[in-house]
Amino acid sequence: MKKLLLQMLFFFLSTCAFAQEKVEMADVMRSNGKIYTVVAVCLTILFGLIGYAIHLDRKISKMEKQQNG
C-alpha cells in the first residue's frame, strides 16, 4: 500500500515537472493575430501558382482542340 502511494506520488510529481517545462511556441505571434498575415501570404503565393496552372491547362486544351479539329 505504502509502495503504491509512493508510486502515485512520484507519478504525480513527474507529471507536474513535465507540465512546468515551458516549451517555446509562437504564442506572441498568435495573440497579436499576425499569424493570419503569414497564412494570407502563403495563400496568395499558392493561388498565384494555381492560377498559372489553370491558365496553362486552358492553353493546352485549346491546342489539343486545334490539333484534333
Binding site: 517545462e21 516549451v23 517555446e24 511556441m25 509562437a26 499569424i35 503569414v38 497564412v39 502563403c42 495563400l43 499558392l46 494555381i50
Partner: peptide, 24 residues
C-alpha cells in the same frame, strides 16, 4: 486546389503538440 488551401489554413492555425526542440 482545395486540399493545399486547407493544408495552409489549418496547418498554420490549428493547435499542435508542444514539444521541445521541435517547437513550431
Amino acid at each position: 486546389i482545395l486540399l493545399p488551401v486547407y493544408t495552409i489554413v489549418a496547418g498554420f492555425l490549428l493547435d499542435v503538440p508542444r514539444l521541445p526542440i521541435l517547437n513550431e
